[in-house]
């Protein structure tokens, strides 16, 4: 086959619905035989967070951040209609009814399809996220790593 096209997504948001959109596009692009990279920065990093309570050595501020941020996509709020936590419960019910995949499954599918999951190390430092808190099979990088993939991307998105 000819040169593979590239799709690059910057995932900045940490809202369940936005992360879902990003991962659906990523998985769709992978089915189109694109090389796909999702660059997780700021709140998007929480998608990669393990859903277990880990206690790496942290400063006071970092501990506060860790407490306030969701551990993994399934614990994220919605960007709209949060309703004090009722929103995500309702949307997941509706998703089940319509056979839409939960975001955690979309993340697994992304790995299965060899989508490159990149974590931005600079924002990891800002938010106090340590490597051991994030999934094991991901890559780390900064703006240059993103640009390297993005400069010849057929599709570049910021979500």
């Amino acid at each position: 086959m000819s040169e593979r096209k590239k799709t690059n997504i910057i995932l900045f948001s940490g809202d369940y619905d936005k992360v879902m959109a990003a991962y659906i596009i990523a998985n769709g692009a992978a089915a189109y035989d694109h090389d796909v990279t999702i660059f997780h920065t700021f709140w998007g990093l929480n998608t990669l967070r393990k859903d277990e309570k880990l206690q790496p050595k942290k400063s006071f501020m970092e501990k506060m951040f860790a407490k306030m941020m969701p551990r993994g996509a399934e614990n994220m709020p919605l960007s709209k209609m949060q309703f004090l936590g009722m929103g995500p419960k309702m949307i997941k019910k509706v998703m089940k009814k319509h056979n839409a995949m939960p975001v955690s499954d979309l993340v697994d599918l992304a790995k299965e399809q060899d989508i490159k999951l990149l974590a931005c190390t600079m924002t990891m430092d800002l938010l106090g996220l340590k490597k051991e808190e994030l999934m094991d099979d991901i890559e780390y990088g900064g703006v240059a790593a993103y640009i390297a993939d993005g400069e010849d991307g057929a599709i570049n998105l910021f979500i």
Binding site: I24, N27, G28, Y32, N99, A100, M101, L109
Partner: peptide, 14 residues
């Protein structure tokens, strides 16, 4: 049948 976006395309590709 019954699968929602993006699964039909993902499965077709596979």
């Amino acid at each position: 049948k019954g699968l929602a976006c993006p699964m039909p395309v993902v499965r077709t590709k596979k």
